Amino acid sequence: MARGFGRVFSGVKRLVTLSVMWSMKHPIYSVSLRRPPARSMAGFSLPFSKPHDFSLPNPAWSPEMLQLYNHYNGMCDVETEGGEKKEGKWVRIPGYNRILKYATGGVYISKMIQSKARLFTRNIREPGAGFEYALFVNRKEQKCVGIWQLGHLLEGPPGHVHGGAIATTIDTVTGCLASLSGAVMTANLNINYRSPIQLGSTVVMESVVDKKEGRKTFVSCKVTSPDGTKLHTEATALFLSIDISQLILGR
Score class of each variant (00 low, 15 high):
A2W: 01
G4F: 05
G6T: 03
R7F: 06
V12Q: 06
L15M: 13
L18W: 01
S23Y: 01
Y29F: 14
L33S: 11
R35L: 15
A38Q: 03
F44S: 10
F54S: 14
S55V: 00
W61N: 09
P63Q: 07
L68R: 00
N70F: 10
H71D: 15
G74Q: 02
D77M: 10
E81T: 09
G88L: 06
W90D: 12
W90E: 11
W90C: 15
G95T: 02
R98K: 02
R98F: 02
A103F: 02
G105D: 00
G106N: 06
Y108G: 15
Q114R: 13
Q114M: 14
K116Y: 07
L119S: 12
T121N: 13
T121K: 07
R122H: 15
N123H: 13
E126R: 12
E132I: 04
Y133E: 12
K140A: 15
Q142T: 00
K143E: 03
W148Q: 11
Q149K: 03
G151S: 00
H152R: 08
H152L: 11
E155C: 11
H160V: 13
I170D: 11
D171C: 14
D171I: 06
T174E: 08
L177S: 12
A178L: 07
S179H: 02
G182V: 08
G182Q: 06
A183Y: 05
M185T: 15
A187C: 09
N188T: 08
N190Y: 03
P196S: 05
P196D: 02
Q198A: 15
V208K: 04
V209T: 01
D210P: 09
K216A: 01
V223G: 13
T224A: 11
S225E: 08
L231E: 04
A237P: 05
F239W: 03
S241I: 01
D243Q: 05
R251N: 09
